[in-house]
Design a protein around this nucleic acid. Structure first.
Lengths: 342, 342
DNA sequence: TCAGACTATGAAATCGATTACATAACTGGA
DNA sequence: TCCAGTTATGTAATCGATTTCATAGTCTGA
């Protein structure tokens, strides 16, 4: 039907009003008479008018969009966080752009540039590994307060973050294993340098000390939140003369890789070794065995991050500190009580 | 540092040239003298200039972005497709926007509206369930040729699609089970109305007929590609007096749900029942047992879809028919040979 | 030396919506 | 009846980059 999209001009002509009135009908309808308002909306409908985003953005100096940096879209963990973010922005009229930050590490001024070139109004980063240089560029461009972290965070206390209580989660995991009679507990960590790795590892250490559990250097196995790293960890464990009776994994995906690897080595979970994960992704309930794990309220984290960013964008300066969302132990079938000492 | 972002004006002043020259330096550098080009680029660097997207988009009547409709971001299946799409657009300078189409079914003129309001230049839909009305709106707005389907497709032959050879995949699965001695084969389908459901089911039927395999209505179990539906299918199978010896699932996630459900009912895979999936997502290799499945080249599909869309956007009209990307049987541990008749 | 053909660059119009400012119409009180 | 104060609407400038058209300068060859 319409060769060229209708513009305000067209609507104005059709409704016999000025372009200013058309614009007002959309942005401040309370300023107009019922009659003119009706006329304008009829004209909008009859012309099939849609506000041109570029023109609006140019004039208002806003992008109408926020960017979500996801470390790795392939990890099912993030989907529920994204859904929470979407829900958080649902009413706002803001577009939510999603980008995988892994392939292309955000270059120097690149993130700040996205603000400067008017393509985004804000950022939620699920990636805590943004370099100091990137963040400094943002500060220099005066957009640092438009960045909120979720799930992960940076050491720089300037940036607020919504995240799980990772330390508590790790302690819950260890405590549960301890209650089930386990003493020799290994841990497969996340990637070195990652903030979650640190938090979960130290929670684990704290609780292990509190409970006076034995510790061996080889029981701390380097992982990276991936299936493969869990699988590799299994090989290491299979090769030990003194195997742990239980393993706490820094992520559910790691636990899956581990269980699969152990199984291939003839070691059954939970009969021979118990396993606890972290995250409680959808899959965990349907793994074999169903995975005992620490649930993160991913949707809630995403939602709160969105709300936090919205508040900041609308000028309400809020506090910079972080919010710790509560975690919960989900008991399933991957942990078996250990009757006697190992 | 920079209070207000630099504009072409600022750069022009700094380089002592006109704004036209600045613009040309960026878009058609071959038109300029080495000297002026250098002067402009220095000015750009010194001012920290970034092209304002809104202004550019307004003037050029392009959005510089394409939209990917994902039926459900939570399904790990899509990640590799998205990564392929990203790679396909890497050189193009186009932004890739990702949207979950599930929560908010695309309303009537909504998709067409995104074109009209200048927020996107093209669409790759991984969702074959876009309504006829939505597509008709796009046709009316003259943007139908800027839509490409990937993985799924619509019945409307106007829209090209890049997809796996689903029929072949299903036949491969059945053939493999047959070769392993299985005769009584059940199938857990995808959601009714979905094109993949249809293709895989008919591939399955064809091969089953070709091989003269027995068929029973209750061996066709309705699923929806989800873990839960696989789990539910397990209950149905457990309740049968005459159980199939093997199950072909329309998706790996379904297979996981199924295996987990069977296990909870005391039936082991593959010892008691063999299972074949479809997709070969990352997880499949690390499930217990590792899943025998049909591999889709997800990255390739995404990449080709991106290339196809790019070709169309640059005016090169191409054929509308579909491309079938080859599939492959991946043999792992979820199928056991059946020595004697069931 | 000059017409004709390029080449490099600038001036100004343009894309479409928003909004500051201006104006017209109307209200109520003195 | 007239003025101050509202209220509804219009006029035109504006956001920043691109691009058409015009112009000054350069080159080629007769």
């Amino acid at each position: 039907m319409a060769k060229k999209p209708a513009t305000v001009q067209d609507v104005a002509k059709a409704a016999q009003v000025s372009t200013a009135t058309v614009s007002r009908a959309l942005r401040k309808p309370e300023l107009l008479t019922e009659n003119t308002k009706k006329a304008v909306f009829e004209a909008i409908k009859s012309t099939g008018y849609r506000v041109n985003r570029a023109a609006r953005n140019l004039r208002t100096r806003r992008a109408g969009a926020i960017l979500v940096l996801v470390p790795n879209l392939a990890k099912p963990f993030f989907s529920a966080v994204l859904s929470g973010i979407n829900d958080g922005f649902a009413e706002s009229g803001l577009e939510v752009l999603i980008t995988d930050s892994e392939g292309k590490p955000i270059l120097e001024g690149d993130l700040a540039g996205r603000f400067l070139d008017g393509s985004i109004d804000g950022v939620i980063s699920l990636d805590g590994s943004l370099s100091k240089s990137v963040l400094d560029h943002c500060r220099a461009a005066n957009v640092a307060e438009k960045i909120v972290f979720a799930c992960e965070w940076t050491s720089d206390p300037f940036f607020p973050s919504i995240r799980s209580d990772n330390v508590k989660g790790a302690r819950l995991a260890i405590r549960h294993l301890h209650q089930m009679g386990h003493r020799n507990i290994a841990h497969v960590t996340g990637p070195e340098g990652n903030v979650l790795t640190g938090a979960r590892r130290s929670g684990m250490h704290e609780e292990r000390e509190r409970l006076n559990l034995p510790s061996r250097p080889e029981w701390i196995i380097r992982g990276d939140f991936s299936l493969e790293s869990g699988h590799a960890a299994a090989s290491q464990i299979l090769a030990m003369q003194e195997r742990p009776s239980a393993v706490f994994c820094a992520a559910d995906m790691v636990a899956f890789g581990l269980i699969s690897g152990l199984r291939q080595g003839g070691v059954s979970v939970p009969q021979d070794i118990s396993v606890v994960g972290f995250d409680d992704i959808e899959m965990s309930e349907f793994y074999v065995p169903a995975l005992t794990t620490i649930r993160q309220d991913r949707h809630e984290i995403g939602m709160q991050a969105a709300e936090r960013l919205l508040r900041r964008l609308s000028g309400h300066s809020d506090d910079n500190d972080f919010v710790a969302v509560d975690v919960e132990l989900i008991v399933r079938d991957s942990v078996l009580p250990l009757s006697s000492a190992h």
